[in-house]
Design a protein around this nucleic acid. Structure first.
Length: 62
DNA sequence: GTAATTGA
DNA sequence: TCAATTAC
């Protein structure tokens, strides 16, 4: 089924914060893909420790 | 290197 | 302005 960025926004993902795996909702999501090639969906997460990290949370086909 | 995004 | 994110 088709999945859009809003769907990624609502789910939670396991991210490594400060050596601890935490489930977080992404602050922001976008696709990262070179022209004509497949790419990934990047999520931006705010860790409990205050650090902001990016993580791939999905794959995108051209 | 390329792609978009933003914290640092 | 750069690092970092993924995978090709």
């Amino acid at each position: 089924m088709p999945v859009n960025l809003q769907d990624y926004q609502k789910k939670e993902y396991d991210v490594e914060c400060d050596g601890r795996t935490t489930k977080l909702k992404p602050i922001k999501v976008w696709t990262l893909a070179p022209k004509g090639r497949k790419g990934v969906v990047i999520g931006l997460f705010k860790c409990p420790n205050g650090k902001t990290i990016r993580k791939s949370i999905g794959k995108i086909e051209p």
